[in-house]
């Protein structure tokens, strides 16, 4: 009976739960799904992480390559994030060039990297005007069950913290760079931005960490990115129903709590990886 109700009237089905201040999967309105983090899962990448938020699975691999800095910014390297939503992860995505959602997500990640200064691009410079690192951060969705932005940011942050760049020396005689793959050092992470996504149901009810079903039924989506100093790095609300100031404050408060949780989680996993070695 419940299954039939859910298929025939999905919106009514969700409303009947929200009326009781809970959700179909048993969560409260401001409760996240279980977040699982695995660091260093890809051995061929310079840094990697796998994140699961409920069923949503994102794997992030970071590949560092040598490049020439741009003429406009000779003392800076660059970071190229890319979000891939392949047909494997959900039936809503078709094969072919990236769709609007994937492109918008990539742009969002790029904006967060720039706004939060998680890595200062000056740190990626090796030889001013001649040589720099370029970090290709590829985030691939393996299972799409809503809230990919949050999972992408966690995966990116964990992968960046895991990244080990080989030491590089420039040979004076040949003027060519020489890599020392044995000696590696980590990146300097300046900030820890964490995203928290919300959905607005029926223009009034706020729920955190929406599943894909909730996303498709919601009237608006909102993503807040905060760092450890409680500064906002992004307030991304692409449209949808409007929001009052109080509700916005509620979202920001929830986001700061989430930032602490994720920061702690990443530190814990990195510590456990270190002790295992």
């Amino acid at each position: 009976m419940a299954a039939g109700f859910k298929t025939a009237e999905p919106l009514e089905y969700h409303r009947s739960f929200l009326k009781e201040n809970c959700r179909p999967d048993g969560r409260e309105l401001s409760e996240f799904r279980t977040t699982t983090l695995n660091i260093g899962s890809i051995s061929t990448a310079d840094g990697s992480a796998l994140v699961k938020v409920g069923n949503t699975t994102i794997i992030c691999g970071i590949k560092a390559e040598l490049a020439n800095p741009t003429v406009e910014a000779p003392g800076k390297g660059y970071i190229v994030p890319n979000v891939d939503l392949p047909p494997l992860c959900s039936s809503r995505f078709r094969p072919g060039p990236p769709g609007e959602q994937a492109q918008a997500a990539s742009q969002f990640i790029a904006d967060v990297i720039e706004s939060s200064e998680v890595i200062q691009t000056e740190d990626l410079c090796i030889d001013r005007g001649k040589l720099c690192w370029v970090l290709y951060c590829d985030m691939m969705c393996l299972d799409y069950d809503g809230n990919v932005l949050d999972a992408c940011i966690v995966a990116l942050l964990a992968a960046l913290k895991n990244t080990q760049l080989p030491e590089i020396t420039i040979n004076k005689e040949t003027c060519s760079p020489e890599l020392n793959l044995e000696k590696r050092h980590g990146l300097h992470i300046h900030k820890h931005p964490v995203a928290t996504s919300f959905c607005i149901f029926d223009d009034s009810i706020l729920i955190v960490d929406p599943t894909s079903e909730e996303e498709s039924l919601a009237t608006a989506e909102l993503t807040v990115v905060t760092d450890e100093e409680d500064r906002l790095c992004s307030l991304h609300k692409p449209g949808g129903s409007s929001l009052t100031g109080e509700k916005l404050q509620e979202c920001i408060n929830r986001a700061t709590v989430r930032q602490r949780e994720i920061h702690k989680l990443i530190d814990k996993v990195i510590y456990s990886v270190k002790t295992a070695q």
């Binding site: 200064e117 409680d230 906002l232 790095c233 992004s234 609300k237 409007s242 916005l248």
Partner: peptide, 15 residues
């Protein structure tokens, strides 16, 4: 109601 329909930000700022 003069409410916020869309928001898009760049850079970091306080609440």
């Amino acid at each position: 109601e003069r409410r916020v329909l869309m928001s898009s930000t760049k850079g970091s700022f306080s609440v």
